[in-house]
């Protein structure tokens, strides 16, 4: 596969951890040249994140639903089982996932319970390009005062996320990946103000 399952996944994990601990921080991971030969319908960053976090003990779901080949490949690479949205531990939304499909899935995915808030789904969402200019204004734990993160999150998506996290500590954690090896996170503790809301 051309990926060092020990050191590469450790490197990716530390970048995810850094971005999760400091929401809005964009981390860059080393994307292996050989990975381009794999011709999967997801970014290498997404595949690396999946290889880092998934194994036979967890389940995943892929959006949009027609990504059958990717579903099989990720299952083969990680040994994780594909599961319905309502049961999946990880939900991977690859580029081209329609807003409606993503919002609907977000509203029904696992949210954890007040007793076990860790039983919620973690999302891996593909973005065109991550940047720190404009877009969402973030505040909360891990952020000194405020941070900016530019993602193509629509108002409906922000509203769906808000619906899921309104009863903190239950809620979902989001990991965004892009084509050039960048990733950023929005844990449930982050307060998000959409640029359009400010207008």
């Amino acid at each position: 596969m051309g990926i060092d399952q020990i050191h590469h996944t450790q490197h990716v994990f530390r970048k995810i951890l850094d971005s999760m601990a400091k929401p809005g921080t964009i981390s860059t991971i080393t994307v292996n040249e050989e990975s381009k030969k794999r011709q999967l319908s997801c970014y290498d960053t997404t595949l690396l994140a999946a290889l880092t976090l998934l194994d036979a003990e967890v389940t995943f779901h892929i959006l949009p639903a027609d990504q059958i080949e990717l579903k099989e490949k990720i299952s083969q690479y990680t040994l994780a089982q594909h599961a319905p949205i309502e049961e999946a531990d990880f939900i991977i939304a690859v580029k081209g996932c329609a807003e409606r499909e993503l919002v609907d899935a977000m509203l029904v995915c696992k949210n954890g319970s007040l007793i076990d808030p860790n039983g919620s789904a973690t999302w891996i969402i593909e973005e065109e390009h991550l940047s720190n200019q404009g877009g969402l204004t973030l505040s909360g734990p891990g952020i000194r005062s405020e941070a900016e993160l530019h993602i193509s999150f629509t108002l409906a998506m922000t509203a769906a996320r808000q619906e899921k996290i309104k009863e903190y500590p239950t809620g979902i954690d989001l990991l965004f990946t892009d084509e050039v090896g960048q990733l950023a996170c929005l844990p449930r503790t982050t307060t998000v103000i959409h640029a359009e809301e400010v207008k």
Partner: peptide, 27 residues
């Protein structure tokens, strides 16, 4: 030795727990 003593499956499980812990401070 295998790098960092643990098998990769153990590391993955602990890493997932760490990410949840960071997302829910103090839990």
């Amino acid at each position: 030795h295998h790098f960092a003593f643990f098998d990769e499956g153990s590391k993955k499980e602990i890493r997932r727990a760490i990410l949840k812990a960071v997302a829910i401070p103090g839990y």
